[in-house]
């Protein structure tokens, strides 16, 4: 299986984990370990940056795992940019998962503010990973302003509804020149496998693992599903064709 490259880093694992909603921090740490994820996101608002003994932050200290702070809670580009700078200073990372959702009910991303913030943050040296709608045009616009990846949603955050945006994800994957990480909505290991089979570079999973009856076992299931899906893709399953392949009934006569 090929390695994933984002900015100046390479990853063996193509599964990213979100760290909200876990009922038990020890269980969260074990789930991270079992998932073999090398990148986990954490909401900046959950961490007390003034406290060196912050329980949540300590639970995320797993060897080999990179912390990806996110701006969940920001309603505008301005707030997200301030939060990214705060994270860079406190956590010594220039990687940021950009989440700007002004609507607190469905937590849907604001495409306009996200584009502004991506451009501004990329200019000052951030590796920007924006959470967005599965909008192929927006993805190209984000590429133009220097995004490191695009993170289109499969379905609303936390909904576990799977790849409702499948057709648009396929277009994004076909067109993208930066890695595509399917984020949000992935509810079952089969959803993750499907995303990988169509050629996504990685997936991000949170709710499906965090609120499973056995989060550690579920983390393992996702790890395997992502590997299987990626191997399926790399072994030549290919992206689904938009046009039908006929068995050549019209041209066979030429060879008869």
């Amino acid at each position: 299986m090929s390695k994933l490259r984002i900015a100046d880093r390479t990853f063996d694992s193509r599964l990213f984990l979100g760290t909200g909603k876990f009922g038990d921090l020890k269980l969260m740490t074990n789930a991270i370990r079992m998932s073999q994820a090398e990148m986990v996101t954490m909401a900046l608002k959950r961490v007390d940056l003034q406290c060196s003994e912050d329980e949540f932050l300590l639970a995320l200290q797993v060897p080999g795992v990179n912390l990806l702070p996110n701006t969940s809670g920001a309603r505008s580009a301005k707030e997200a940019i301030l939060a990214a700078q705060l994270a860079r200073e406190a956590l010594e990372t220039n990687w940021i998962k950009l989440e700007i959702h002004p609507d607190p009910r469905y937590l849907l991303p604001d495409p306009i503010e996200t584009l502004y913030a991506t451009e501004a943050l990329a200019k000052i040296g951030f590796v920007v990973m924006p959470y967005i709608h599965a909008d192929p045009v927006l993805c190209k616009r984000l590429e133009e302003v220097g995004t490191a990846v695009v993170m289109p949603l499969g379905a609303p955050i936390g909904s576990n509804m799977g790849l409702r945006t499948l057709d648009f994800l396929k277009i994004i994957i076909e067109q993208s020149q930066v890695p595509v990480v399917v984020d949000a909505g992935i509810g079952a290991p089969s959803d993750a496998a499907k995303a990988m089979e169509i050629g996504a570079d990685a997936v991000l999973v949170n709710t499906a693992i965090a609120i499973a009856q056995h989060p550690v076992l579920m983390a393992e299931a996702f790890q395997q599903a992502v590997v299987s899906g990626r191997k399926g893709y790399e072994s030549g399953l290919g992206v689904g064709h938009l046009e039908a392949e006929s068995s050549s009934p019209l041209t066979n006569f030429l060879f008869e």
């Binding site: 876990f22 009922g23 038990d24 909401a43 608002k45 959950r46 007390d48 920001a74 505008s76």
Partner: peptide, 19 residues
């Protein structure tokens, strides 16, 4: 004991700028 996480902090002052 109920398998739930008691959360003391879930806000960051940075996000308090007015819309």
């Amino acid at each position: 004991g109920k398998g739930y996480d008691p959360v003391m902090k879930d806000w960051e002052a940075t996000y308090s700028s007015p819309i």
